[in-house]
Design a protein around this nucleic acid. Structure first.
Lengths: 236, 236
DNA sequence: TAGTGGTCTAGACCACGAC
DNA sequence: TCGTGGTCTAGACCACTAT
């Protein structure tokens, strides 16, 4: 492990144990001599924690603990729903509605920069958190990128983990939009609510670092049980 | 301006003009000699662009252009609604519903870490984009932090800009939640839609770097005209 | 004046990818 | 083998804050 990463972990532990909100951290010079590393290393560790909002720096004064707890939300992380919920201790399960190769619709083709009719793996699931159905997710991935995905059991695992391990593909950036809709008859039945009630609709396109469109999905969350969390952080 | 910032701007312009998606950037060593700066400077500029998703690096190969256009969304930026919309060329106006000092309700007091009944400046507005009413925003700020805010004309300016200039307070981090609701009779009237239709409700608490709660607001967006945009970016 | 973080230099060695 | 980005050293000067 690089020094700066080890130091980052040490400082993170300090913030959780010895240091309270508003406390001043040791100065960069003190850290250099205390841990026997150069200032480059100290700054890389401290800057990372600053970007994550754990601490903040004031020129001429010092570095201080922000102390807020970070709970990254799956809405703004490429990590995915499964990883996000699992990290909070929830149990996630999926009921598979469809897992087949279909020709891309005009809409999906446009979102994924494919030709209309190009083969995509369509994966429709009802996702439950701690046993309760929360959302209906309809995902599409270009079949050429993930051959064989249509026959992998995804009920109890993270799809992103499978894609990463089997195909070496990792989502890197993307865009999501959220809107309020009246829930459809079909989705209401899946989620056990009345049709027409307010629901959240989240649409997402994830791309690799090379900007290859990897996945499009649309998910509908029942409005009475779902809030989407977003963390804000100013650029430091 | 620091060298690394100037270099950042130069590289950003290159990405927009000379370089296409997937193109390789000059290597770090080439930039050093070309611009006559040390590698520290080059790395600080390149790393920033990497974090913003403009470029990405592959060890042993080089640095490449991602090329996606960044459209920062006001949902995940502390910058605020006004700055976000204004930067996209929209005209924002506000109809002031209420701008007074009131005692904090139990709910607001808890969100702002105040005592119940402590004075807060309540600012309720109907916000219009390009002349069309889009959302109802109800904000509360601790009166001790922003004395006099209740008598400043906020109809045509950014509230965050006012708070920054007059009181030296800048939002630094915070948390927002999004949910789907059926719009109330009152808000429906403000927005000119039918009561009970799906709407988005965004709740936010913004804090300063010192973790002082600066502002709580709740805003309701008419569901038929609003989508909230979120940019995803993997940690590099 | 002393201490802090912000910026910068001029080197170094390493692991990884391409050839 | 060579070039790339990843990590690291040991300094330096600056602007800002506090006293």
């Amino acid at each position: 492990m690089p020094f700066y990463y080890q130091l980052r972990q040490i400082l993170l532990a300090d913030v959780g144990l010895n240091l309270k909100p508003g406390d001043r951290m040791p100065s960069e010079g003190e850290m250099c001599s205390h841990y026997g590393v150069s200032r480059t290393v100290v700054r890389q560790a401290v800057d990372e924690l600053g970007r994550e909002g754990v601490i903040y720096k004031v020129k001429g004064k010092g570095t201080f603990v922000t102390s807020r707890k970070l709970e990254s939300s799956h809405v703004q992380n490429v990590a995915g729903f499964y990883a996000s919920m699992a990290s909070k201790g929830h149990t996630i399960s999926s009921r598979m509605l469809r897992q087949v190769i279909v020709p891309a619709s005009a809409y999906v083709a446009q979102k994924l920069s494919l030709d209309i009719g190009a083969p995509v793996v369509a994966i429709d699931r009802v996702r439950s958190v701690d046993g309760e159905p929360i959302s209906v997710v309809r995902a599409c991935l270009p079949q050429v990128l993930v051959p064989g995905l249509e026959s992998i059991d995804l009920r109890e695992v993270s799809m992103y983990a499978v894609i990463s391990e089997r195909f070496g593909l990792r989502p890197h950036h993307g865009r999501r939009t959220i809107e309020a809709i009246a829930i459809s008859v079909e989705d209401a039945a899946y989620l056990g609510v009345k049709p027409g009630l307010p629901a959240l609709r989240l649409e997402s396109v994830a791309r690799t670092a090379e900007n290859v469109a990897l996945e499009h999905f649309e998910s509908v969350y029942r409005g009475d049980r779902s809030k989407l969390d977003i963390q804000l952080a100013d650029q430091q």
